[in-house]
Design a protein around this nucleic acid. Structure first.
Ligand code: SF4
Ligand code: SF4
Lengths: 163, 163
DNA sequence: TTGATTTAAGACTCTTCTATCTTAAATAGA
DNA sequence: TCTATTTAAGATAGAAGAGTCTTAAATCAA
């Protein structure tokens, strides 16, 4: 998997918080978020703690507590979330996992992977929480996991449109 | 990690076999290969078994036994190795891991990821074992893991050249 | 102040990936 | 045929990721 589950959930949760912030002031309840996104409450809590200690979210305990964006959602990019949870590895590691990766002694797929890797980085870096959340509303995109009942859907794995 | 360790090793081993095939006829010893690539013998054996049952390699037991390419190395692409070991997931799965991924109900990063995913596929698909092995010789590229002694090198993780 | 609510933190379980070890089967060569 | 060599196959173990559970600490409201 390219992104860890934790990272995926972190992105979805960040977008959720961004949208809620547009609707009402105050902190967003993790319990409510976990229900709406179909993510395990305790697992989600752990992930959000990472984002909190990374300075992306702030949190508050007690009734009316929860998490909130610490900075302006236009200034937070998806790469911030990814790095906070999965680290920079995706954007810096060798595709073949060879230590000492680099221009001096590249492996056979270096040039191509370096380009794709940079694409990935720039894609995530160019997407702020604010505009991504906005696009969700405009285009009615999905960003929650499927509920137990609609699990039947499975992934569409269409090999042909890649050719 | 984008590719599993097993898949990485499978690619390196395939390239090794391809190069050996240019030098001498017959089967390539897994024991010798594991030493030169610095990959655990038993683990490598298991991976090569996958490639054998996938029809990419043929194998022979006993003295002078080993593995050999079953088809012409110009007709085997890196995507064949990846798919045989890691499956098609990398080229078909959602980046966010949402089931039901697709055009009908895409997630917020669909368009970008679909493009990058396709790039990855075409890159691997466009690289045959033959030409990749050739490029290794021409450009003196690396394709083995570092030995225990040169482990010091570590990965170069230069954040800046991505910006 | 008291109690209900909510996040924080850490221990714990479960699964998957990585790697190792043992035994069996096949082959070449003496 | 007999023996050494080499891959095949399955059991086992270790590490990391994913997910759960319990207890503690902070906060609000009555
Ligand atoms: S392609 Fe470049 S970055 Fe990837 S493993 Fe090879 S040397 Fe490293
Ligand atoms: S970007 Fe497309 S492929 Fe990736 S998770 Fe979203 S819908 Fe699925």
């Amino acid at each position: 998997m390219v992104l860890s589950k934790a990272c995926t959930y972190g992105i979805l949760a960040s977008l959720y918080v961004t949208r809620e912030a547009n609707r009402s002031k105050g902190y967003v309840s993790i319990g409510r978020m976990s229900k709406e996104l179909n993510i395990s409450f305790h697992f989600l809590t752990k992930i959000l703690q990472q984002l909190t200690s990374a300075g992306i979210l702030s949190s508050m305990k007690g009734p009316k507590g929860g998490v909130a964006l610490k900075r302006n959602p236009q200034e937070i990019s998806l790469v911030d979330i990814v790095v906070a949870i999965d680290g920079m590895g995706l954007f810096t590691d060798c595709l073949l996992g060879l230590p000492g990766c680099g221009e001096e002694k590249p492996c056979p797929v270096h040039d191509e992977w370096a380009g794709i890797r940079a694409d990935l980085f720039h894609t995530f870096r160019g997407k702020s929480l604010a505009e991504t959340a906005k696009r969700i509303d405009e285009l009615n995109l999905r960003f929650a996991l499927p509920s137990e009942s609609e699990e039947g859907g499975k992934s569409i794995r269409d090999f042909r449109n890649l050719l």
